[in-house]
Design a protein around this nucleic acid. Sequence first.
DNA 1: GGCGGCATCAACCGAAAGGTTGACCGGGTC
DNA 2: GACCCGGTCAACCTTTCGGTTGATGCCGCC
Lengths: 226, 226
Amino acid sequence: MTDTPQTSDRAPEDDAPEGRIRLLLADDHPVVRAGLRAVLETEPDFEVVADVPTAEESVALAARPGVDVVLMDLQFGGEMRGPQATAEITARDGAPRVLVLTTYDTDADILAAIEAGATGYLLKDAPPEELAAAVRTAAAGKSALAPAVALRLMDRMRTPAAALSRRETEVLQLVADGLSNAQISKRLFLSQATVKSHLVHIYTKLEVDSRTSAVAAATAQGLIRR
Amino acid sequence: MTDTPQTSDRAPEDDAPEGRIRLLLADDHPVVRAGLRAVLETEPDFEVVADVPTAEESVALAARPGVDVVLMDLQFGGEMRGPQATAEITARDGAPRVLVLTTYDTDADILAAIEAGATGYLLKDAPPEELAAAVRTAAAGKSALAPAVALRLMDRMRTPAAALSRRETEVLQLVADGLSNAQISKRLFLSQATVKSHLVHIYTKLEVDSRTSAVAAATAQGLIRR
DNA sequence: GGCGGCATCAACCGAAAGGTTGACCGGGTC
DNA sequence: GACCCGGTCAACCTTTCGGTTGATGCCGCC
């Protein structure tokens, strides 16, 4: 379920893949950007064309030709988040590949990134070699998942009991943030009946019987962010 | 950027505090270590003598002379955490200063670090200049707090209301684990009336009005574990 | 000795959440 | 077309929770 869109296009290569791989770095931490530059520029076939501190700038720069792979953080201090930026970048024709690079490996984050069109999902604690290998894999259009992430996806396939839908995850995250059903219904433009309906399904899937225990169970399984 | 500790075995000579500031970097992310190196080595008066991926190694290396400031992450993949390592480093005579560098600014993290003897507390999204300035401040033995962190501490001083009693914390932790009032009363050998009474006090102190928002608020402030 | 904070419990009431049944729609799949 | 699933909503009922008032006992403190 929810397999990666790697079957979509293996179209004939248009933008010179045999040259250097041109990278765009998007991360709001200056230190991380510097680190990625330092690590990636030691590879002779990589070229970092730009690094930006916001998701918005990454979208703008990725729209211009001359970028093969975007290394994208998920959390940004500002407005736009990584998944949204990823979706906007990959929606265009001839778009660069997006490689998500984040600290967390929760189910919710991984699914959101993949659904947004990310070609790969890496963790920031990855060693430099793994990072470089993933960039090359992504540049070739193949999906690149960190071992821990791949394991998590496998687990999810094997145990679909605790697989919440996108909407259910969204509702449960707001519950975890402390919102009441009424507040959630307003936030998501739903009726309270719908919110309750989602919650009943969530309780069934997680085998619990209250909102607090649902949050506890989902947190323990990494389905939502604390 | 390497995974192995790089001890500079040059002349151990004396602790020349007025010479270059000798730095030890401790972070489990290779990318972050490389980034810190890249950022800090552009400063002519800084010298990165080693970078290590675990808290244990940072303790071992900080014990040897030739380190003025340790840049310490709080979260490590392994066993020992940043606060413990900070405490062990600062406990010795003639110990280097420890500058905590982390992504989060929760009350619990900040207090734990300061209680452990950290000289400063920085956030990873800090710009390079701020970072360099904080290192120099720490090397001089003065405390260096990021603006956001300082604000948070002021807030906490001004509002000591968020101090839960031991029993209240105990109850709230069980709430966070997903237990109902009836389950909590059995677990703690109380009547449900008492549990409710505790909860009402908790809500007042945290300025919330439901168990889920109490858990969210307490988690954000680090009052309970997750 | 009184004062206040903490912990304990009871009774009560209204509001929120939990649970059920049933219904409609749209997008996939067989 | 038939079917299932996800998402949406309504009505109804039961249980739990939130909030209040009031009470008791213990402890530390000035």
